[in-house]
Design a protein around this nucleic acid. Structure first.
Length: 202
DNA sequence: AGCACGATTAACT
DNA sequence: GTTAATCGTGCTC
């Protein structure tokens, strides 16, 4: 096992959001809870870019909820949805420009027992294959909003992982945007590692 | 102060 | 394929 630090630096996030969303595939989301590591390889992301993107929460401008997206890159934007689900995003781009990458799915690597205890009612393949599922598996909630993902202090960060080849990546329209108008609804800003790759590597 | 809605999931048919 | 669950947020009154 790799022991040396491979924490993704702030410069990684301070780039165009689509680039960050693409390159986060294969990176490792890490959560330390009571000294125990829970980690997973990121397999699906979506980009939400600026006030003009009507699917992005920042379409409403700066509010108490969205101000984190206007801040420095590399922080976590965690918000509540549908009355019961937490979603984890990584803030991207230069301070002042609101954008973030939604982390939609991971492939469990470490802390399997803990993930199983939280998600065990479901088949293993469904433990962390949705944004709210991985948040539940890693015990991520409102208390993680605005924490710095470029530091290990908060117990939540992202490490560099194996590079995912373009031929293993599927790009498509973001999902769940039922009432978002075109062209935003169909923007190909969703990135996922092909199922075949997930199955063969895990 | 009140209200409609949502970057979803799980349990139905 | 359909739908209920459930509450923070932002907009309207």
């Amino acid at each position: 096992m790799k022991v040396s630090t491979s924490l993704l630096p702030r410069e990684f996030y301070d780039r165009p959001t689509l680039t960050v969303a693409r390159e986060l595939l294969g990176a490792v989301l890490v959560r330390v809870e009571g000294g125990v590591r829970i980690a997973g390889r990121i397999t699906e992301t979506e980009a939400y870019v600026g006030e003009s993107d009507l699917a992005c929460h920042a379409r409403a401008g700066i509010t108490p909820r969205t101000q984190i997206m206007y801040g420095d890159a590399g922080r976590a934007y965690v918000y509540f949805n549908y009355g019961m689900h937490w979603m984890l995003n990584a803030v991207t781009e230069t301070e002042g420009f609101p954008a973030a990458v939604l982390i939609r799915a991971i492939q469990p690597i470490e802390g399997i027992e803990i993930i199983a205890s939280r998600r065990g009612k479901q088949p293993r393949s469904k433990w962390t294959d949705g944004p709210a599922k991985l948040a539940q598996a890693l015990a991520i909630d409102k208390s993680f909003n605005s924490v710095d993902l470029c530091s290990r202090e908060s117990g939540l960060w992202i490490e560099a992982g194996e590079r995912v080849l373009d031929e293993s990546v599927t790009i498509g329209a973001r999902v769940g945007l039922y009432t978002v108008p075109e062209p935003w609804k169909s923007m190909p800003w969703r990135f996922l590692v092909k199922i075949k790759e997930i199955a063969s590597s895990g």
